[in-house]
Computed example of a mutant assay.
Amino acid sequence: MSTERTTPAGSFSYELTRTLDAPAKKVWRAWTTPEQYARWAYAAAGSVEMDVRPGGAWKATTVTPDGGRFPLTGSYLEVVENRLLVIGMDVPGKPAPAVMTLELDEEGDHRTRVVLRQTCDTAEDRDMAEQGSTLLLDGLSAFLADGARD
């Protein structure tokens, strides 16, 4: 399973595409259920809260491999169950949230194409966000491959 990377030259945007061996409903639940999300998204136990609806808030504390903890907050801007999540991520010192778009496209009964997009303010922000998103997709892929419960 590989990730297709599309980063336009001179752009502060990126797009990652990956096909997962799981139906869209299962991918959706992994991304929108606090207990499941915490298991694959490097979140501290008990730190994930999700109100998955337009305007609903979310929060999680990410734990880095060296033990660092980073609290994250935001809100859902657009929600289409099993198809689309547009997620606003609060950025300290900035009036507007960073926006990440997650699209799910079911391919047959048991495969889902995931497209993750984000536009950032700088090349450095884009590179960091893209690295984090790649780690998220890696964690999600492993979680689903290990037989995530329905």
Rank of each mutant, 00 (worst) to 15 (best):
G147A: 10
W58H: 06
A22H: 01
R18D: 02
Q131S: 10
G55W: 13
W40S: 10
R18Y: 02
V79T: 10
P95E: 13
T64Q: 09
D146A: 15
Y42H: 15
V52W: 02
L135W: 00
G88A: 09
E107W: 04
R117A: 09
P23A: 09
P95R: 07
T33G: 06
T62D: 06
G68R: 15
S11A: 13
E15I: 01
G55I: 12
E15N: 04
L102Y: 07
C120Y: 02
T134K: 07
D138C: 06
A60N: 03
A123E: 15
N82T: 07
M1Q: 10
R117W: 07
L102E: 05
A96C: 00
L16A: 06
S133I: 00
M100F: 13
V27Q: 12
V48P: 02
D109E: 14
D66K: 08
A98K: 10
N82G: 02
L84C: 07
D105H: 05
P54E: 09
S47H: 13
S47Q: 11
E81K: 12
P65V: 04
S141V: 01
V80N: 08
E4G: 05
R126Q: 13
P8N: 04
K26W: 00
T112M: 08
R149W: 07
K25Y: 02
T73N: 09
A41K: 01
L84G: 06
V63Q: 03
Q118N: 08
K26C: 00
Q131D: 05
P92H: 12
G67P: 00
A22R: 01
T64I: 00
P97D: 12
Q36K: 15
V80S: 15
V86L: 08
G74N: 07
Q131Y: 01
D127R: 14
V99A: 03
A57V: 06
G88Q: 09
R18K: 15
T61P: 11
E107F: 02
R113W: 01
T101S: 14
L102G: 07
E78Q: 10
P34F: 04
R29C: 09
D51K: 07
L116F: 02
G55Y: 14
S75F: 04
K59I: 03
P23H: 02
S11E: 02
A43E: 03
L102N: 12
T119S: 12
I87K: 05
D138V: 11
Y37M: 15
G10L: 05
G68N: 14
G10D: 13
V79A: 10
G88E: 07
T119I: 08
Q118E: 12
A123F: 13
V114D: 03
V99G: 03
A129M: 05
T17A: 00
V27A: 12
P97G: 11
H110K: 07
T62F: 15
T7G: 00
A44H: 00
R18A: 05
T119G: 12
L136V: 08
H110E: 11
R5Q: 05
Y14Q: 10
A145C: 01
V115K: 11
C120R: 01
M89T: 15
W28D: 04
A41E: 02
L77Q: 15
L140V: 14
A145I: 02
